[in-house]
Every structure is written in C-alpha cells, then in structure tokens.
C-alpha cells in the first residue's frame, strides 16, 4: 500500500480550512500577522518539508482533500522521473525527493488532473481514479502501453 502520509511533516493537513478549532480570542494575533514557522527558520530554503517546523498558521498544516472527487494515482513502475508533474502542479502536491517522483500529497491535491495531462509516459504514470478507489485496485486496472496509431 502507498503511504498516504508520504514524507509528511508531523502536522501536514491536520487542520480543516475554515475549521472551528482555532477560533478564539487569544489566537487573534496583533495586526493579524501570521508566522509561517515555529522557532528559527533561517535556512528553510534548504530544508525539505518533512524537516521543517511548520507553525499552525502555515497552510501546510491544512487540508483541501475534501475538494476532490477524483484523485490522481501514481504508478512508480512506469514513471521516468521527468518531473513534469512536479513543475506544473499548482498545489505543491507532487512529492519529489532527490530527482525522484515518490508520490502524491493527498492532503493538498485538489484533483485538477494537470499532472496526468502533462505526464509523457506510455502508458501514463499518473491516472485519475475515484476518490474511494484503493491503490491496489487502481494499479491492477492500469492500461497497457498504447501502440501509436498510424
């Protein structure tokens, strides 16, 4: 099974957008200023998401999973690590580490399907499935390589 919390920092996607859990008086910061991290974040640009100490105000800790009706499923056996999906993902939801595509951050993916569209492999390494489809069933339905039509 693919780990849905793949490469997640502890707090990834724990909050609902517009959720009630943070509403209060003490959480109203002076000047409505939001801090992105806890502690010293000087070298954040050189830290991967899972190494960062995100604050509760960082949208990394929120989820938009409920926006999806369909989800992209990743098939690592077909992927050539071209990183097209990484560069064009509008939701920072392609998890690439050390030039390798590892999978999808389902807390932040909205199911737009751009990654599937830009995937150049044959068959595609990313395909859309119903939100409730489990990974094994999805992978078992993966199409064969298409022959080029003449």
């Amino acid at each position: 099974m693919q780990d849905l919390k793949l490469k997640a920092a502890e707090k990834r996607g724990i909050h609902q957008l517009g959720g009630d859990e943070l509403v209060g008086w003490d959480e109203v910061t002076q000047g409505i200023i939001l801090t992105s991290f806890e502690g010293d974040a000087s070298d954040i640009v050189h830290k991967k998401a899972e190494e960062r100490n995100y604050s509760d105000f960082n949208s990394y800790t929120a989820t938009v999973a409920s926006w999806r009706v369909k989800k992209p499923v990743f098939n690592i056996d077909v992927c050539i690590d071209c990183q097209n999906c990484w560069v064009w993902c509008p939701d920072t939801s392609i998890i690439s580490r050390d030039k390798q595509m590892l999978g999808i951050d389902y807390d932040h993916c909205k199911g737009c399907e751009v990654c599937v569209e830009v995937c150049p492999t044959n068959p595609k390494s990313l395909l859309m499935f119903g939100e409730q489809e489990d990974l094994e069933t999805a992978l078992s339905q993966w199409p064969e390589k298409k022959k080029k039509e003449k």
Partner: peptide
C-alpha cells in the same frame, strides 16, 4: 527539470486557488 525539482518549495499547498490555476 530533474535538477530544478530538488528545490524545496516555499509556496505551500492548501491555498484556495481554483484547481488547475496557473497562478500557483
């Protein structure tokens, strides 16, 4: 792109732009 993809994003998900928006 492989080289480029080793960067660590500083723009986080769970923003509320429409799915497929080119802005992000």
């Amino acid at each position: 792109l492989k080289e480029f993809s080793t960067n660590n994003d500083r723009f986080e998900g769970a923003h509320t732009l429409c799915p497929g928006c080119a802005h992000s």
